[in-house]
Structure formats: structure tokens, C-alpha cells
Write a protein that binds this DNA or RNA. Structure first.
Lengths: 176, 176
DNA sequence: CATCGATTAGTTATATTTGACTAATCACAA
DNA sequence: TTGTGATTAGTCAAATATAACTAATCGATG
């Protein structure tokens, strides 16, 4: 659903053909979405079938014609509906990591500690990346999203540090 | 991948047939996974094909025979490998909500505020649920996972409150 | 004891996602 | 000018996920 929103948003900014859409996502939004090329094409096709976008053959230079997609009136409405939905609703599904945590007693504490330490390093590296991300002058939204990302990673880092400390104390009592 | 881990974990605890697996996920792990029945069955089939689980026909009472799945030696290894992977790696994909936030300037500030306030209520309700969740006496992992969930929702709530305040200030300057 | 809704235990058709493939053009060097 | 590796612009087969369907049994009720 956020994928549909993303593509509608890109079409809203500018009519484009599938290749450009995918290229933009790969090059500029690699962190934002890991949607693959074939998925982008298939979503474009669906959007057209459902009347949210329309395509017309376009030409550039000597290249073979390609389908240029534009958002329709109906598509703009759809975009706004989806936007409200993702803004208002909370995603309640538990991330993979927490599912793993539930099984942590099946691991030796020593091994678990190694995993969590690796994860802590990762998290701190990501925090750095987002903190050093350039401010976006136009468009408040992107900066707000980045700020949220930072908050989340900070919370994750704090929890990780405390949990690692707690498990370390356990190994001192009973070093299995 | 976390779905495979979950099913292997359930099989590790006890050999079961597909229906019980799905029932347990639906009734007890509704918050943990939204995996659907047909998916559970298809993962069980794949696990068997790849040698991580094996099935044998079982009978109970007068009911027709059903396939009971057990985890294999190879499956236990697989479980541990997957567990290490999800524990160590950071999921870097941006949640749907943040993708929405990036488009927030396409919304009127008034509408955006309404959405975020709805979301804040939701988040506070969830926080309450997790704070009041009963402690799990055996198995430290579940409590740690719940603690992490609480931290994340707290961070989300704080960010939401600040963002709502910021947008409110904007409406006072320029009420569009 | 017939029957009717709930529960058990799946299968199947359909939709979504992705990795792998195709095929044209371009840029540049030998 | 001809080959060759990169870029452009997709398509297609295979994997994954889910909604909808099937079909047997159970339990209780009139």
C-alpha cells in the first residue's frame, strides 16, 4: 500500500515512464523503499487498470517508444486517501527482530550478546548517517520523517545498551 | 524469513499439524504476526521439501488423519541460523508512515494535524496495552521484546507530540 | 434422530513480488 | 567500422501470500 502511495506521489510530481520511476527509487530512495523494478511496473499496470493512472506512448530521441504514465483525477483522490490512511494508522505488526528476541532463551547468553553487540554497532552507524543527512530546504515532511527515524534509532540504541548490560550481568552470575 | 523462524520455533516447542500452528498464531500471536493460514501451510510444505521438517500422518479420536510436522536436526540448525540473523541485523526499510510523512506538504496542515492526532491516540492506547501486559515468568525474551515495543511507542509518542505542536504553530502563523 | 451452525483441517484460485532474462541503443576504443 | 560493455526499457517465470472455497465432524437443540 505504501508502494502504491509512493508511485502515485512520484507520478503526481511528474508524468514518467516505468524505467524512470524505478531508476529514481533505486538511486534516490534506496533507503526509503526496496521495491524492485518488476514490482514498480506491475503496480503501474494495476494503477492504469483501476483508472488511477493513464499511459500514452512517448518518444525521446531515437529510442523506441515507451509508455509514459500520468496520474488521473481519480488517482489524485486515491493518493490523498492513501496518504491519510498511512498518516493516521499505526502499524502494529512486530518487527522480525522482536520475534527473534522472543526466542532468545534458545540461544546461549554468550551468543546472544555477540548478536546484540553487532546490532548495536549497526544501529549507531545508521544513527550517524541520518544525523548527517542534509536538511531539505523545501518540503518540511522529509526532515520530519528523518527526525522520526533518528528518534527511533536512539530509542533502539538505548534499549540495546540496557539489554546488553542486563545479559552481561547474567553471564557473571551463571556463565553458560 | 521471520515467518519461517516463527514456525520453526513453534515446531521446536512441539510437533504439531498445520491447523494447530495457525490456530496458535491467530489466537495467541495475533499481535506478533499477521501470517494467514494458507501461508502457514505453504511454509510447512516448503520446510519439509527442504528437509527442515518432516511430516507423518497422525490420528486423534474419530477425526480424519492429518499431517503432523516435526522439526528435524537440520531444521534446528536452520532455526539457530535464522535466529542469529534476525538478532544481529538491523531492518533498514522505512515504515509506511514515514513514507507518508514525506508527502505531508501535499496535505493541508489542518488535515495533517487531524491524522497525526488520531495516530497519537492510537499510539497511546497501544502503549497502555503493552504496559499492562502480564510479565512472562519463564522466558526472559518475551519480556525484553515487550519492553522494546514500549520504548519504541514512547519514542513515537514523543515525536508525535512535538511534531503536532510544531504544525500547530504553523497554523497560527498561516492558517490554510 | 434429523438438522444446523460451529469447529477442524485443509486446498485452490488469485494477487503480489522478485530474480532472471531479453533486446534495443549508446558511447567509445581498437 | 566494428566490436564491446554500459545503459535503457522493459517482460516473464517462479516464489510468496492471501482470500475464498471445500468438506468432514462435532455438539446442541427441537
Amino acid at each position: 500500500m505504501e508502494r502504491e502511495l509512493l508511485i502515485l506521489g512520484l507520478l503526481k510530481a511528474q508524468s514518467q515512464h516505468g524505467y524512470k520511476i524505478n531508476e529514481f527509487i533505486e538511486k534516490n530512495l534506496g533507503r526509503v523503499s526496496n521495491m524492485k523494478k518488476a514490482t514498480a511496473y506491475s503496480i503501474l499496470k494495476r494503477l492504469e487498470k483501476e483508472g488511477y493512472a493513464e499511459s500514452s506512448p512517448g518518444q525521446e530521441g531515437n529510442r523506441p517508444t515507451k509508455l509514459v504514465y500520468s496520474i488521473t483525477e481519480k488517482g489524485e483522490k486515491r493518493f490523498e486517501k492513501l496518504l491519510r490512511e498511512v498518516l493516521a494508522s499505526t502499524d502494529e505488526t512486530i518487527p522480525a527482530f522482536e520475534i527473534g528476541m522472543m526466542f532468545i532463551d534458545h540461544e546461549s547468553v554468550r551468543d546472544a550478546l555477540a548478536c546484540l553487540k553487532g546490532r548495536l554497532e549497526n544501529t549507531e552507524r545508521l544513527l550517524d548517517t541520518y544525523r548527517n543527512a542534509p536538511k531539505h530546504p523545501n518540503g518540511l515532511g522529509i526532515d520530519l520523517a528523518i527526525d522520526r527515524r533518528i528518534r527511533m534509532y536512539e530509542a533502539d540504541r538505548d534499549w540495546l545498551k540496557e539489554t546488553i548490560a542486563l545479559l552481561k550481568k547474567q553471564t557473571e552470575i551463571d556463565p553458560n
